[in-house]
Design a protein around this nucleic acid. Structure first.
Lengths: 101, 101
DNA sequence: CTCTAACGTAAGAGTCTGCTAACGTAGGGG
DNA sequence: CCCCTACGTTAGCAGACTCTTACGTTAGAG
């Protein structure tokens, strides 16, 4: 989550989401920063497994790891499901209190 | 997203997800840090609208803003839907190329 | 009115982060 | 073999972030 808190990394992931792209082409989408900066962002994304790397000659092709982002999505979903569990627990505790009274 | 990149803020949001809690009680869940630090985290969460504040005497009661987190969830979902759009666009472009050939 | 509990806030220290600039490396092309 | 392209990596810096300490404020109790 912290990884995608950085807007550029989020955008990079979006770029390689459906299409495999070489590092240079990714960097070209960010005229405001150096290719080096993008390379470092790619290293971070790779370190947390959000992208996969494939080498082809001197080029390195990147793809998004959909499964990893799916994990993040299900983590957010857990907020809602845990809320249901919690409400059920609260309701049960409340019922026990009423029975005791 | 960057806001929840901080683990403590994520945990705070979880605490106030189903239950309205006063600031002190939230801080008590984090023995490792000062109440001041938690107060500052609450300010950040409030500034991005992830929590709502209600005053009751000297106490301030916090609740999670479910709608705001739902926006984040749908943002992640947009990754998958946009991927479908993108694939459709690519397919159409490819088809035009074949027709031209 | 004084005291205390429950807060937020300001200032400063230490740490992390994202960036650039410079350099190193590996794989072709000629 | 030389050179160029496509990269990653390192060093260093400026700004952002998180934490603590100290202080200010407000509401209620006595």
């Amino acid at each position: 989550m912290r990884t995608l808190g950085e807007p550029k990394r989020c955008e990079i992931l979006r770029l390689v989401w459906v299409e495999e792209l070489p590092a240079t082409e990714i960097a070209d989408h960010f005229p405001s920063v150096t290719r080096s900066a993008i390379s470092q962002h790619l290293a971070v994304l790779r370190s947390v497994g959000l992208v996969n790397e494939r080498r082809e000659g001197t080029r390195r092709l990147y793809t998004a790891n959909h499964a990893e982002l799916a994990r993040l999505r299900s983590f957010l979903d857990s907020f809602w499901t845990s809320s249901l569990d919690r409400l059920r627990d609260l309701a049960e505790a409340d019922q026990r209190n009423q029975e005791r009274a």
